[in-house]
């Protein structure tokens, strides 16, 4: 196989999925993954296994909260918008420096 034939083959392979569908099972992704819903539902919290009832309550919470979570994850905040409680650096006087001097 020379370089030209090899290129043709690679090109043809790239189009293959358009003509030949892979087996159905391979494409059958979990619905929760494809529409961006929350997949994570824990079996336990604080080392305590959740009861069947608790799992239902939790699942119901997620049904209501999923839209909110997606809404939050779609917002990209500017990096300079830091939370108010994080002080801006460098600090005016460095406490660590002072302590070192005293030492």
């Amino acid at each position: 196989m020379n370089r030209r034939n090899f290129s043709k083959l690679i090109g043809a392979t790239a189009f293959l999925p358009a003509f030949i569908q892979p087996p159905f099972n391979l494409l059958k992704l979990d619905a929760k993954q494809t529409n961006g819903e929350i997949k994570f539902l824990p079996d336990e919290l604080y080392g305590r296994k959740l009861s069947a009832e608790e799992k239902i309550w939790l699942e119901n919470f997620y049904k209501n909260y999923e839209k909110s979570k997606a809404e939050l994850q779609n917002i990209e905040l500017p990096i300079e918008l830091l939370p108010a409680f994080i002080p801006k650096y460098p600090m005016k006087s460095s406490r660590t420096k002072k302590q070192t001097d005293e030492d």
Partner: peptide, 28 residues
């Protein structure tokens, strides 16, 4: 209230990043 039970449980699974994003949005 069963909804509140779910809320209490669900609150433990919301990520810190999402919570902090809300606080940053609050500042904005």
């Amino acid at each position: 209230d069963p909804e509140r039970r779910g809320e209490m449980l669900g609150g433990h699974t919301i990520s810190a990043v999402d919570y902090l994003k809300c606080l940053r949005l609050k500042q904005k």
